[in-house]
Design a protein around this nucleic acid. Structure first.
Length: 422
RNA sequence: GGAGAUGUGGCAGAGUGGUCGAAUGCACUUGUCUUGAAAACAAGCGUGCUGCGAGGUACCGGGGGUUCGAAUCCCUCCAUCUCCGCCA
């Protein structure tokens, strides 16, 4: 969430920035400032009363020690009204504080000054495009037909076992998944990311830490008996490694990568959007996460973009990079670049990666800090990106590489699949 | 899942309900000494809120309670350890 100090000092700037996200924050911020003011006043009062009580209590202790029980008991009476006042202030304080926290949770991150205005995905700006969009042969098919023709993915079987959006990968289809995961992990390691295998279920605190809660509660599967959530992305468990951590300056940057399945409930899609691998409830993804010093987080973001670019180029897929406009930007991100690959048989672009800088927004929730030159604790920056999400990569690979003699595996992947064609 | 024990500062480890934000040791930082280092000695050494500042206040696993006053007593949750059961 946005730091309260920033809101105190730059409320107008924040309101203006949030308007780029098409978020009208004027009322909330006014209320936040009021509550913040009240909260501090109450705290000062309460501190003063506690101070009084503490000194009276000390006196009572001393009186008892020196055998003046009568005087001590008389002193006790003084604390009666004091205690009701303290209790009163405590209740008020808690009420205001939880209201304030609630409102702060409702404020999205402020977009970076580079973020273009806009409301819908059409307003995103294509900043880079590369790769040849080939012509396919006459009998070219969409990936869901290829998947069933070559017996790679069984969607109906998944429906039987679980439900729609939980495919079963078979034979070379399963091996292709494994190959991609290993390829992505190796590439990440070569770029300096340390591999971790995190839990796939997280507690509530972790959900709040990265911002899935309370904003996107409905997106996550919820194991209510234990109050755990199935992770929608490795971002959640991996970034929460750093919750409540004060890292040493020399330990910057932290670069982690993780492969995990991801679980998303997703609501309200239909037709071609959800056909085949386009949108699933369970899918595999390799994520890269960085914790950075604020001065170098944008440089790190560039590095992450370069990393994802190199993956797509090694896979020989035509892709483009979009800079998301304010309206399409996620709740917690300051800036996001989406990577899309072209799916030839479907004749559409498919999002395969999202690379974002969250600046201090997540760090503030996580209490992820470092000691700066002045010896003060300061919030770090967090970043993450998909590198990459598998299903749509598979869709594009199958569709784009189909020939009349089968599907060709890109060269870079062959050492991992150990077969050249499907 | 059952029984028992434990949870204190970066680590180890004290702490009869009152002068405990917390002894002591180690680690760390700075200074003295030294050509330099080590050793020794001295000082410092957690996090938040609040205040221009001195300071005030809160935090001894989390939450709640008893009390004039809680690290210390009670309840509850969580975690760890030991034993038993179950199990990939």
């Amino acid at each position: 969430m946005i730091e309260i100090n920033r809101i105190r000092e730059n409320s107008n700037e924040i309101i203006e920035r949030l308007s780029i996200k098409n978020f009208d924050s004027k009322e909330i911020i006014t209320e936040i400032l009021e509550l913040d003011q009240q909260k501090r006043e109450i705290q000062v009062k309460s501190d003063a009363l506690l101070n009084q009580r503490n000194s009276i209590s000390k006196e009572i202790g001393n009186l008892f020690k020196s055998g003046q029980a009568e005087l001590a008991n008389k002193k006790k009476e003084e604390t009666v009204s004091l205690n009701t006042d303290i209790q009163d202030l405590k209740e008020k304080f808690n009420a205001i504080d939880s209201k304030l926290t609630d409102l702060l949770y409702q404020l999205p991150n402020t977009p970076h000054s580079d973020v273009p205005k806009g409301k819908t995905p059409e307003d995103n700006i294509t900043i880079f495009e590369k790769g040849e969009i080939k012509k396919l042969h006459d009998k070219a098919k969409p990936h869901w037909e290829l998947a069933s023709e070559f017996d790679l993915i069984d969607f109906d079987l998944g429906v039987k076992i679980t439900g729609a959006g939980f495919p079963v990968y078979k034979g070379k289809g399963a091996k292709l998944q494994r190959a991609l995961i290993n390829f992505f992990l190796d590439e990440a390691e070569n770029s300096g990311y340390k591999e971790v295998i995190p839990p796939l279920l997280v507690n509530e605190a972790s959900g709040y830490g990265t911002g899935q809660l309370p904003d996107k509660e409905g997106q996550m599967y919820h194991a209510t008996e234990d109050n755990f959530y199935l992770i929608p992305t490795a971002e959640v468990p991996v970034t929460n490694i750093f919750r409540d951590v004060i890292i040493k300056k020399e330990d910057f940057p932290q670069k982690l990568t993780a492969y995990t399945p991801c679980f998303r409930r997703e609501a309200g899609s239909y037709g071609k959007d959800v056909r085949g691998l386009n949108r699933l409830h369970q899918f595999d993804k390799v994520e890269i996460v960085q914790v950075q010093h604020p001065d170098s987080s944008y440089e790190a973001l560039e590095g992450m973009i370069e990393h994802v670019k190199s993956l797509l180029e090694k896979l020989e897929l035509p892709y483009r990079i979009l800079k998301l406009c304010g309206g399409d930007l996620g709740f917690t991100a300051a800036i996001t670049y989406d990577f899309e690959v072209y799916s030839i048989a479907q004749e559409r672009w498919l999002e395969v990666s999202s690379v974002s800088n969250f600046e201090t927004y997540q760090a503030n929730r996580l209490k992820l800090r470092f000691k700066n030159e002045d010896g003060k604790t300061q919030l770090a920056h967090t970043l993450n990106g998909s590198a990459l999400a598998l299903p749509r990569i598979v869709a594009a690979l199958l569709e784009n590489n189909q020939t009349e003699n089968g599907i060709k595996i890109p060269k870079a992947l062959v050492p991992y699949t150990r077969f050249e064609t499907i």
